[in-house]
Design a protein around this nucleic acid. Structure first.
Length: 110
DNA sequence: GTGGTGACGACAC
DNA sequence: GGTGTCGCCACCA
């Protein structure tokens, strides 16, 4: 998993996020062994739409479950995409964030 | 090659 | 408890 760049790993983890779940930049960064590199995760998401692969970037939010990248999102709205996955969002804030939170450290193990 | 920046997070003050 | 600052790694000018 960590054979590739930090960058590549981000995409792999994001692609593994199950539908109806979300995770945080920090959780992904932490899973990759660089808990402070959460910036890179978000930055990777920025480039994700440029990739041939489909990256469910809308399932990645910041630590508090806030859709910070919504304005940055191309085309669709993160909110709508997440709502289609039965995730409730109020004022860019994911409700029941603890319930829908998907921690790669727990789900995938390291 | 250097510096600045970025969809964040944690700590210090 | 709110604000400020640094760190982290990769990319662009």
């Amino acid at each position: 998993m960590t054979n590739k760049n930090f960058f590549e790993n981000v995409y792999e983890v994001v692609k593994l996020i199950p539908q109806g779940r979300v995770t945080s930049y920090g959780a992904i960064a932490n899973y990759l062994g660089a808990k402070s590199a959460s910036r890179m995760v978000g930055w990777a998401m920025n480039q994700s739409h440029n990739l041939p692969e489909k990256i469910p970037a809308h399932r990645v939010v910041n630590r508090i479950g806030l859709l910070t990248g919504q304005a940055h999102f191309w085309g669709e709205s993160m909110k709508e995409l997440l709502e289609k996955e039965q995730i409730v969002i109020i004022d860019n804030q994911i409700q029941n964030f603890e319930k829908v939170f998907w921690d790669p450290n727990k789900e995938l193990e390291l």
